[in-house]
């Protein structure tokens, strides 16, 4: 391993993990985030955040949790709890500090909520809500209808999940936000901001419009795919830095290596 490697730090930046501290502000997303925050303040029962996988829904939800938890009671259920009784028990435990030994019914949950009137309606953030069963979603709807809890949920946008959304939330008071894949310009801002935040100025300078178009063509503006591709790309740079440093051009990315990284991540079939 090369000491003081130029590309090891950028490589580690693009490990695909969701951490609110790694949140990068992009204009379109940050406007949406602001609207989402405003919606949370409104007396809405349920807020829906949906989009294709890799569009940044989980990151936005984590960021919301990070920001809101400074001022109010907000709970995050990142990994879906598919068993109904377990779900209600965890919810009662987290929100009301009530920890029953056995499972808890919906009526019991609502009774507890009514008995322990909180000054503000607690907020629960549910990630990957498409994994919840229809009957559990119905219970979630009933809890939000009773204004016991305010839910912010994320859904993958597929035909199936659209049906789920229609069945459960169509007649409810809710607001929805759709997250979309990034454009080449937005992706460039995302990558460069991420690098600049970590003081990788020289590597940030290597990204230009041309190679960002190539990256966007491979990843279709999907943040998760971009992270994977850039992780592979900087791993390649690390290898060349160690074994064949003369091959590296420091003023721009090599399209060949971008393509090789795309092959490695399965974005190109070769």
């Amino acid at each position: 391993m090369v000491e003081n490697s130029l590309f090891a730090k950028p490589r580690d930046l693009f490990v695909d993990v969701v951490n609110a501290k790694d949140y990068i502000q992009i204009d379109s997303v940050s406007h949406m985030y602001q609207s989402l925050k405003n919606s949370v303040e409104k007396p809405l029962k349920m807020i829906l955040l949906y989009g294709k996988p890799g569009t940044g829904k989980s990151m936005l939800l984590h960021k919301l949790h990070y920001d809101l938890s400074k001022h109010q009671k907000v709970f995050m259920i990142g990994t879906p709890i598919v068993e109904e009784e377990d779900f209600l028990r965890v919810l009662a435990q987290q929100i009301f500090g009530h920890s029953p030994r056995d499972g808890i019914s919906l009526n019991r949950f609502l009774d507890i909520a009514q008995a322990l009137t909180l000054p503000d309606v607690p907020i629960v953030l549910l990630d990957e809500a498409q994994l919840y069963s229809s009957s559990l979603m119905e219970k979630i709807r009933l809890i939000s209808d009773a204004r016991a809890v305010k839910f912010v949920i994320t859904l993958h946008k597929t035909d199936k999940e659209d049906i789920i959304a229609k069945e459960h939330f169509q007649t409810r008071i809710w607001e929805s936000f759709e997250l979309k894949n990034a454009t080449a310009e937005e992706l460039k801002v995302y990558v460069q901001k991420k690098l600049l935040k970590a003081n990788c100025f020289d590597v940030a300078n290597m990204f230009n419009d041309k190679n960002m178009k190539l990256i966007t063509a491979f990843t279709r503006g999907n943040y998760r795919e971009t992270n994977k591709l850039l992780f592979a790309l900087f791993s390649l740079y690390c290898w060349y830095e160690e074994n064949h440093p003369a091959a590296i051009k420091y003023n721009a990315l090599k399209p060949k290596w971008v393509e090789m990284a795309a092959i490695h991540t399965g974005l190109i079939r070769a």
Binding site: A232, L236, W239, Y240, E259, M260, I263, H264, A270
Partner: peptide, 18 residues
Amino acid sequence: MLNIHDLERRWLRYKIKH
């Protein structure tokens, strides 16, 4: 772990196919 030589070979195949 990256196998660079294999990747280069696959890249060449991809370019030819492209």
